[in-house]
Design a protein around this nucleic acid. Sequence first.
DNA 1: GTTGTCATCATTGTCGACAATTAGTCCTGT
DNA 2: ACAGGACTAATTGTCGACAATGATGACAAC
Lengths: 229, 229
Amino acid sequence: MMTTATAESLDEETSTIADRVFGQVRQAIVEGEIPAGSKISEPALAARYGISRGPLREAMRRLESTNLVERRPNLGARVITLSNDELLEIYVIREALEGMAARIAAERMSDAAIADLKDLLEQHRREVARADWQTYFQEEGDLDFHFRIVQGSGNRRLIDILCNDLYHLARMYRCQFGMKSDRAADALKEHELVADAIAERDGELAEWLMRRHIRASRRAIERRLAGER
Amino acid sequence: MMTTATAESLDEETSTIADRVFGQVRQAIVEGEIPAGSKISEPALAARYGISRGPLREAMRRLESTNLVERRPNLGARVITLSNDELLEIYVIREALEGMAARIAAERMSDAAIADLKDLLEQHRREVARADWQTYFQEEGDLDFHFRIVQGSGNRRLIDILCNDLYHLARMYRCQFGMKSDRAADALKEHELVADAIAERDGELAEWLMRRHIRASRRAIERRLAGER
DNA sequence: GTTGTCATCATTGTCGACAATTAGTCCTGT
DNA sequence: ACAGGACTAATTGTCGACAATGATGACAAC
């Protein structure tokens, strides 16, 4: 069972130091080890990972491009604090992009990949009884499903945008706030509908269902945010 | 009249050297000054811009994140050679993203911005007679229109993805191959339809029209590519 | 003649040090 | 007491040099 839905296989042994520390600090940021909004000191981080400032600066540049840190010239880098509006913006983009991914996946996904997708859903269905299922599903299982659909599109740039940028932001948000909603059961049902549409090679329906699914998730977040204040 | 449709205003005076050279080499790549597929030598480029390798490497990292250059560890960086398939992939993403942008723009764009948009189209309509109009429209005017719609969405991340990544790739492709199609007149008409839908605050129609417009552009490219071989 | 191996070379990756800009603080004058 | 300015300190931006990895060529063996 895959645990981290990332495109590049997070080798931890990518010959270059800058790439490795990029993955490490990204994980640290996403999982909240480096708190959101905190200022990042280059010498401190460099010492923490036992490297020089050169590779660390390159890693920071990559993190800046993935929108996980903000940099202002001569002032330093800060971990982003994703506001509520920005979180909703991400869901809008996911609706458009993953809807398209579902459409293409319905047309181009291999039969074997579709079978695997159904296996995953079957597994989720069986695990509903688990005590920590809701937690697991909301933290990893949900993204695993979306990850496979996106992969099924075969559009490399689409995969890149979603898996290397947006999914990390979604995970970061989940690690910050508990994201305790009762939508897990509904989400699983919506997943099954999307998978059925893909299995029937109905691209238009798959896109429509996927968009409705993500829109429902966004609305649930909107409600939660509205009720919180 | 704006000539380069980029999000950050390409200041040429962003206090840090790495950022400035990033913009310069990006322009050089997009406009073909540095040919596609060519290997990039760090010492050579550093000398060319009169800087050291440190800032240049950071600029390369940013270029790598925007998918304009490919890097392989210990092997160097190469300017990407966007294959036909990758170009079509970009149009698929544009269809999804700009369709959503048009929908939101129809809901949230200010009346003044809509008036400006119509002015731009009116200007394009008047310039149809110009001898070099087809060239201008295909090189800049078309992107100007799309740029404004995307801006109208107000979704910062959406704006970032489209203006800082995809549009540069589209421009790069246009600078490489002549992109001489007779779709200019049709495209202008489709633009007007989209603008009308936005003016009537019909988000669903605006999205549908925008998607059809971009799909038509993609199909025109497909036909051209098929006829070429 | 072909192929395998080795040595040289160029290029990339990494590091430590210097220069420049910013933030904070303390002092002074009104 | 408060405002303004200058000084100090820390952090970032930049540079040149060293180490390591991959490529190119020649030479020798089969």
